[in-house]
Design a protein around this nucleic acid. Sequence first.
DNA 1: GACCCACCTGAATCTAAAT
DNA 2: AATTTAGATTCAGGTGGGT
Lengths: 377, 377
Amino acid sequence: MGLMEKVKARKAPPVVAPIELPLDQIIQRDCIAAMRALPADSIDMIFADPPYNLQLGGDLSRPDGSHVDAVTDEWDKFDSLSAYDTFTRAWLAEARRILKPNGSIWVIGSYHNIFKVGSAIQDLGYWILNDIVWRKANPMPNFKGTRFTNAHETLIWASMGEKARYTFNYRSMKTLNDELQMRSDWEFPVCGGQERLKKDGVKVHPTQKPEALIYRILLACTKPGDVVLDPFFGTGTTGAVAKRLGRHWIGIEREDDYVAAARERIDAALPLDESALTTMQSPKAAPKVAFGVLVENGYLTPGVVLSDAKRKHRVLVRADGSVQTACGTHTGSIHKVGSLVQNAPACNGWTFWHIETETGLKPIDTLRQTYLLATQP
Amino acid sequence: MGLMEKVKARKAPPVVAPIELPLDQIIQRDCIAAMRALPADSIDMIFADPPYNLQLGGDLSRPDGSHVDAVTDEWDKFDSLSAYDTFTRAWLAEARRILKPNGSIWVIGSYHNIFKVGSAIQDLGYWILNDIVWRKANPMPNFKGTRFTNAHETLIWASMGEKARYTFNYRSMKTLNDELQMRSDWEFPVCGGQERLKKDGVKVHPTQKPEALIYRILLACTKPGDVVLDPFFGTGTTGAVAKRLGRHWIGIEREDDYVAAARERIDAALPLDESALTTMQSPKAAPKVAFGVLVENGYLTPGVVLSDAKRKHRVLVRADGSVQTACGTHTGSIHKVGSLVQNAPACNGWTFWHIETETGLKPIDTLRQTYLLATQP
DNA sequence: GACCCACCTGAATCTAAAT
DNA sequence: AATTTAGATTCAGGTGGGT
């Protein structure tokens, strides 16, 4: 994987864990009990879409008198704010136990519950990396005209702690976003049309999430082969997307109807082939080339002069791959001298230093590329 | 004002309160102590921009080596998450005491603190009405490529309880948004340029908020003459906007420098009909420009008179981008009032209404063109 | 005046691996 | 565990000087 992909564990993960995991299966059971039965440090990522505790009052109807089909399911009801808090902390604590030290967790919610979720995440020792806003392209209007149209939901992305590593496929996200850094606000339509699961014309699940949303999350924060757990599986959006993207999945869900719909859906999902799964990598995916190797191999001759893009600073290349300023005040690697002459905390010598060619100055990084092309299979 | 303004109190407010209130003044004191000295049930709205508890580590530099000027002020430092929690609950409880039963509170924050704030708001008995996302048109990038660009902040709007009434100027918001319901995601640029207060070339406050943001909030959730309290006044954005919009304000701020800057700024602020907003709203989100945006951005001043090409009909521009006939019989968007005065089924307000200039009448559509030219690439 | 370009800046929890 | 080293990493928009 690429450079910024913070993926490598310092120690090998426990060998037994993968064997015990019920990969690519639905566990039909209470979410906390099911998680308790999973081994510690075994999951790469959790995506969770817990009950929102919407606390809806009576029926809601549109201005034309038609009835709004709201979330009235028993699983969304809690006795009190404090009961919801207790439930939230319980499942988040269990999630923390089964996540690998380099794993991460995503939770989606609305203003009804996300503050409770986020507060618990912080209290339990997770480290929030971003909050992400899902802007709904087509939200339900506020029929009564009493508030702002509730046009977004919030996701929290957290690692296992302040110092914990985590997977973030920076290049993939930047590529996906037309070569601009992916921002924290994402726009998707709500789940509808062909994608929305229905049975006898009635939606199977009241809060089915769009696959595009989960797709971006899995692409950003997991590697192929990773194990993704969804403790509130519902109709299995996470499973379907994970299967497509070549990730393992585990779903936990109690309700018969949801489990049946999820099984059928995931069975029908087609995995992408490997070429489609290849994502943008950081340049470091290529083997590292030491500057000195270019000198050793004659791509650069000792004694040649390098300069920065504005020809403000100049250095001499020496036989061992070190460089020296003209006045001799600074000596060292291309990076070190680059930072010293600029008086900057750091410098990437590969892009800072240039070599004079017939067509003008070129960064020495182009020499590295040439070398790689010539030497790699 | 509009239809849905739930503004009328069932009982008259305590008669004494307004007399004791230090209206349109800055209280230089600790925020909690200052609130304790205010009478109960006396404030119509609180806008609060508390410390975020950013917990920043070492220095951060841009790829070009330049240094990022971060928030390093003592007032943003807390000993622990739990200390921040205690502080948050303390000021929110005091805020609750001084708010009128029909009042409401707005708090802004980032993922560092907003979950703690929201959780406390719910625990204290407030009732969340919306969470609002401020999408930054020009956020600071994530220089190291380690996370998603942190491109938004979150605001929470809450009433005093589930059954409490509150002010919401639904029509103003809809008009401001070109006859579409105002959504929960708002786009504004960060505060910079002429609007950013500087002293000797250095920003006076590290986290000054854009006036356009507060403008929309006060327009949406207060009435003229209401009392708006800002317990973390900083350089007085809330005071300046409140003065412009004809609302009373009270600011609480400890730091000498901020208080001095706020005083000077608010003294210079002009009330509504004389001032022009010099802030900018990013046009990116909507290539089409709402009429209200021209008002928000100072292309049109509230109070100015528009007329049709033959000067047969005249309307007054109001702060929310609505217009009103001289005789007061018709009120609404430029399109709606245009059709009403002509007794026509529909009307394109952009071409129907004109503004008086030195060179004669010009359709307001030219202002829109000017705005687009100024803001589009 | 119009245009271009270099430079500056904004609430930021901002590196990874080897020694 | 703290230190060192290699080398990866930015977007929108305002400001100001020069042509």
